[in-house]
Design a protein around this nucleic acid. Structure first.
Lengths: 188, 188
DNA sequence: GTCTATATAATGATAGAC
DNA sequence: GTCTATCATTATATAGAC
């Protein structure tokens, strides 16, 4: 390996990718304020300076790593008659503890005014409006809003704060009610 | 005023009180990570050093300023038949932009692992269990959990992220559905 | 393309004078 | 009881060598 190769062995694209992956995981786990650029760089195995080189700023990295992942495609694909059950199974099932979850990243970053402000339009379009377009019948937007609010609520209480559920019996009871509560807004 | 009085004109109790008031407002507006002890001290009109003098640490101040305010007494007092309407009116009404709101403080502080961890038991007792004790019929805990999750969801989407509602018509439509959705878990 | 070194600023916390 | 002064740490971001 030549001296030049030592500094070229990954390439801009691959380096961006590993930074984005590390950022997505850290932002998900600790939120925006809780994730330092140093920690992200270390996790990615790159030099700190490269974060600003490729993304301009920490906020720019959040935009690149989290915003494009904000989607509900995984939830709305499939029969909408099983939507409530599907969402309930996701939140009250095995709980994968995914290494990167953009919704967790957003909910853990609500303390940053900069992030919250920049996300408003994106969340509206990618969540509320996108879901509404998958709902038949009237008042689709209000019904989509109710569903998104409930998903945000369960995410905060179950995954971020982990206040719920208390035990296994409670988990089943809440899961059942949650599925029905979501589904009623899908149905009308 | 003597030299001694210059350094005694408020007293420990009053000084603690103004610090707590300033902290409650700043933590509510910017969350834990977003509120520096210097900003809190400045807002309170006291010296920074007094924060550690009286509360030991920034976390100790959060405990003193936010945790005792975490209660749903204001919501559960009154006829439970009107609970859903009451909560909906609160979140979709004039929106007071209260200067201090402990729930906002918590939701904006979820990025801090230290805070989230220390709040778990308190939130469980003061919100879920407290509300459950105000519900008649079976499965009170699961129903209380559903209500708390929906309140957390509306708080995040409406007050913290302000993704909803889009306009006035939407506000009314969501408010109506939200009130009914809450009330159904009060009724059984 | 990647690094070292550093600028600059802010943080939480403490010691000790008054 | 309150202050000044400061410590020690950490943060984001940039300049410039290689």
């Amino acid at each position: 390996m030549t001296e030049a190769e030592k500094q070229t062995r990954r390439g801009a694209e691959a380096t961006s990718a590993v930074i984005i992956q590390a950022a997505a995981e850290l932002f998900s786990a600790r939120g925006y304020d809780g994730s330092s650029t140093r920690d992200i760089a270390e996790k990615a195995g790159v030099n700190v300076a490269l974060i600003n080189r490729y993304f301009g700023s920490k906020a720019g990295l959040f935009d690149a790593a989290i915003v494009p992942m904000l989607t509900i495609h995984g939830l709305v694909e499939g029969d909408m008659a099983g939507f409530g059950e599907r969402v309930a199974a996701y939140y009250f099932g095995a709980l994968p503890d995914k290494t990167a979850d953009p919704i967790l990243a957003v909910l853990r970053s609500t303390g940053s005014a900069e992030i919250a402000e920049s996300l408003r339009a994106t969340l509206r379009a990618k969540f509320v409006d996108e879901l509404a377009s998958n709902l038949d019948g009237h008042d689709a937007t209000a019904r989509a809003a109710m569903i998104i609010m409930q998903i945000a609520g369960v995410d905060v209480m179950v995954r971020v704060l982990r206040v719920l559920p208390g035990d296994e019996g409670e988990r089943e009871a809440i899961k059942d009610r949650f599925a029905k509560s979501i589904q009623q807004f899908v149905d009308g």
